[in-house]
Design a protein around this nucleic acid. Sequence first.
DNA 1: TAGCCTAGTGTTATATTATAACAAAATTAT
DNA 2: ATAATTTTGTTATAATATAACACTAGGCTA
Lengths: 140, 140
Amino acid sequence: MNKIMKNENKVLSKNQKIVLDFIQKHKKPVKAYSILSNVQKKGIKAPPQVYRALDKLIRIGKIHKIESQNSFIACNTKHCTSSHTTAFSICNTCDEVLEINDPKLLEFLSGFKDSSGAQFAGYNLEFFGTCKSCEQIHES
Amino acid sequence: MNKIMKNENKVLSKNQKIVLDFIQKHKKPVKAYSILSNVQKKGIKAPPQVYRALDKLIRIGKIHKIESQNSFIACNTKHCTSSHTTAFSICNTCDEVLEINDPKLLEFLSGFKDSSGAQFAGYNLEFFGTCKSCEQIHES
DNA sequence: TAGCCTAGTGTTATATTATAACAAAATTAT
DNA sequence: ATAATTTTGTTATAATATAACACTAGGCTA
């Protein structure tokens, strides 16, 4: 059998479900060791169990890693196919992180070529600043 | 004196120069502990000395952090004012990392507003894929 | 159905990345 | 000069992530 055709099984295992459930319960990104300490009662006992689940969940697009924070957040779209074209806004004030799904942004970045003419397969974009509600609080 | 006007001194100290020199010698990004082990002969002995220098160099825009790699690369422009608006392309094959200075990209991202209407102060963008020369090698 | 392959698990240990805390020295500003 | 700030040196430790290995469960195939 062709190894390339090898199935990336999207049926989640027990540990993968536990980790995904935990992440989905939180609006804000969560850290690996926070996940670990919160799911120990469910039987996950050691870091590799968490990191393996995280790896798989990232590969199949169920979660994304916020690279600037070493934290993890659930994907906000039903059937994510873009585990390697991601964009987020991060509020420095309230720490809210929102995934951005903007067709124009996607189009612009997916079509972008660098000065050598290379076009890239994926990207991660993280905006930093103040979210709308924190901005309004500050104004008043 | 107004704390906001407090001068961010751009004259580099001894350790800051040592660390910057090392980073500038390398085309590819370097890791903090690689810096440490390579500059120990110059008198830098412990991680905090490296990380403090890195922090300062990032603040003044002399270097940037590649977040997806926890590595550091020299800024490719003379008088960088955009330590918080950065973009890179990362080749998965040869590990080359190039800083992107594209006015159109800068304009697009600096002007971007998310779905709530928020506009952000900075961003970090990392493209992943294959650089032009690796692509050509693979074709042949 | 027996053997094999793949993915996942459990576990211990360790590697890698980064910061806290504190005293002292050097530099800069008033 | 002296106060304020930055930088240094140092020890210890926190936080993030992976290596390695033995074992298990399930699907494929011969």
